[in-house]
């Protein structure tokens, strides 16, 4: 498409957004600058033309706070107020039913259900007081269960801290997306990811792949890790989750204490790391997380 065609198309879009016929006089701008200016105008007019458009562009950072804030009054959006952003990701393209269902669960006009793309939806819920973690997890679980039971669509959900002002929303949105990406990398079987709970994952996510491989080669190399059966991996997960307690792990996993000891010994023979020792446990925990990271990247 040449410049003239692109320009005409953008002018047509601008006409649809504003109801005004624009013409371009000699501006002294280059072709590229002219097209960019037109795109900016479309974004701006689309944004101020609908509440969801405003939120969408503002969250993505495509609309400056100073531009967005001037439209708040028009859409009855309060600048101050406690809000919680939820970022939802579906396995397959979601259906209209999923969006209708979420809107029905959130009938308050202050709350927002925003379609980001075919796989992502953002929900912004207003609260009277700062919601507790239990409240957030409960509501998140109920949305996910409802979407599966009623709209037959499987979603994951991530969230960050609740915010007190409109200004903080884009940061919370970004953190939620990051939580989803890190969660999918280090805990792909998870369902709800909280930015504040990412722990080691947040740190390890930023390590370059070659550094990861170097670490694994120094401690437990990838070939060795790939030989460990899932039963042992599950046991190690449970052992770490139960603060390296043999009694608690065997109770939770419904296995005999001696069986657990036998399997940990076997793991120690294979890798040279005895996870009953704190320092070895840390090395194994990090190695397993990095191994997951490598597998997800590939």
């Amino acid at each position: 498409m040449n410049f003239e065609e692109k320009k005409d198309k953008l002018l047509e879009q601008l006409n649809r957004a504003t109801g005004i016929n624009f013409e371009i006089s000699d501006t002294g701008l280059s072709d590229e600058e002219t097209l960019n200016k037109l795109k900016e105008m479309i974004i701006h007019f689309n944004a101020v033309d609908s509440k969801s458009g405003l939120y969408r562009l503002y969250l993505r950072g495509e609309l400056a706070y100073s531009d967005a804030v001037s439209s708040l009054h028009r859409f009855h959006i309060e600048e101050n107020g406690i809000r919680q952003v939820f970022y939802l990701e579906s396995q397959a393209d979601y259906t209209k039913e999923a969006v209708s269902l979420l809107k029905s669960l959130l009938p308050d006009s202050k709350d927002v259900v925003l379609e980001v793309d075919n796989k992502h939806i953002v929900i912004i819920i207003n609260y009277e007081s700062i919601p507790s973690k239990e409240e957030i997890v409960q509501i998140a679980n109920s949305y996910l269960d409802m979407l599966e039971a009623e709209a037959f669509t499987s979603f994951k959900l991530s969230y960050s801290k609740s915010v007190n002002t409109f200004k903080e929303l884009p940061a919370s949105y970004k953190d939620s997306i990051l939580a989803m990406n890190i969660g999918n990398t280090f805990n792909s079987n998870g369902r709800i990811y909280c930015y504040d709970d990412l722990g080691l994952g947040r740190l390890l996510y930023n390590i370059p792949e070659e550094e990861v491989e170097a670490y694994l080669n120094k401690h437990i190399n990838i070939d060795l890790l790939s030989q460990i059966d899932e039963e042992t991996l599950n046991l190690l997960d449970s052992f770490f989750a139960n603060d390296l307690s043999l009694a608690e792990t065997s109770r939770k996993m419904f296995i005999h204490r001696n069986t657990l000891i036998y399997r940990l010994d076997k793991f120690a023979d294979l890798t040279g790391y005895d996870v009953r020792k704190f320092s070895d446990a840390i090395t194994v925990k990090i190695s397993l997380m990095l191994y997951n990271y490598i597998r997800t990247q590939k």
Partner: peptide
């Protein structure tokens, strides 16, 4: 597709439409 399997699901965390 799940919706065409003629099944119904009941999960742990149900929510009712408040309005």
């Amino acid at each position: 597709e799940p919706k065409d399997r003629d099944i119904a699901m009941v999960f742990q965390n149900y929510a009712l439409y408040p309005h």
